[in-house]
């Protein structure tokens, strides 16, 4: 890049960089300072430096790893379910949507509801004495599962998350599906290719880049889940529904252990950054190959 072009780039990017530094820089620096200190609400203005003590406390805390495992499982399972269902809906309903575009608006409605509200809605509708689902199950079968007990609560929150966010994957994949070159599919049909083989061998490979993006976004969203689980069941009996976000929130506000909460947040950021960098490098290497 010529020197003058580099200078122009720097000048043009400077306002954005300065803006980001102002907006993000201060909280980041403060987080690092508090993460390296013993800080409570009483000592917010006079934190005492303790080095890596908070980080070692977090790493030695079984609940941190329990939360990390919950978030990882939740993120992976919900992302896969949402993308699989979203893909199915996008492909299966494409002919219907081509004729009646308004159906998309109906299908994405769950996505519009605030996640915290969704959690409250399930809290009401799954309650044994107030919720319509258990009510009819008792009426028809004389029995209803305990949706929110320790055995079933993970499945319940996975289903709730999947039902709310499948429309997001569906929307992304529908947009991608609608832009697939029709001539390739037409040619394959003329050659007598069956629909399943057409999908598997031609359309799915063409949809893969979008599918990866959808999976990635949904995984990130699932991994940092907070609102709907917190309003539905809190951190769960014995903390079994504690996600990473809930762990950090509770350490910060409920236990007043600000240093530990921020150390956990920094560790989480570090792990996410490392993973992202690795994925990016892997992607570049594949493209180069």
């Amino acid at each position: 890049m010529p020197r003058h072009t580099r200078r122009e780039t720097a000048v043009l990017a400077a306002p954005l960089v300065l803006f980001l530094l102002a907006i993000l820089g201060f909280p980041v620096i403060l987080s690092v300072v508090y993460g390296l200190s013993e800080t409570t609400f009483q000592t917010l203005r006079s934190p005492s430096f303790t080095g890596l003590d908070n980080f070692s406390r977090v790493i030695a805390d079984d609940r941190f790893w329990q939360a990390a495992w919950f978030s990882l499982r939740f993120g992976v399972i919900t992302a896969v379910l949402q993308c699989a269902l979203g893909l199915f809906l996008a492909v299966y309903l494409a002919p219907l949507i081509a004729r009646h575009g308004w159906t998309v608006a109906v299908l994405i409605m769950p996505m519009v509801v605030a996640p915290a509200m969704m959690g409250l809605m399930y809290r009401l509708s799954l309650h044994e004495f107030a919720g319509p689902i258990p009510h009819y199950m008792w009426q028809w079968f004389g029995w209803s599962p305990a949706f929110l007990n320790a055995r079933n609560v993970f499945a319940t929150v996975v289903v709730a998350e999947t039902l709310q966010w499948t429309p997001f994957a569906f929307l992304l994949l529908l947009a991608a599906y609608q832009t697939l070159p029709r001539d390739v599919a037409e040619a394959a049909r003329v050659d007598g290719t069956r629909p399943w083989r057409l999908f598997w061998k031609i359309e799915l490979p063409l949809l893969m880049p979008t599918l990866w993006i959808a999976l990635f976004i949904r995984f990130i969203d699932g991994f940092r889940v907070f609102d709907n689980i917190y309003t539905l069941v809190g951190s769960g009996p014995g903390g079994i529904t504690t996600s990473m976000s809930i762990y950090i929130y509770e350490a910060f506000l409920r236990q007043g252990d600000i240093g530990r909460a921020l150390a956990a947040a920094i560790l989480l950021f570090g792990a996410a950054f490392t993973l992202l960098s690795l994925a990016q490098r892997l992607g570049r290497r594949r493209r180069a190959a």
Partner: peptide
Amino acid sequence: ATPPDSTS
């Protein structure tokens, strides 16, 4: 003796 969802 208490509902199975009592843990929520």
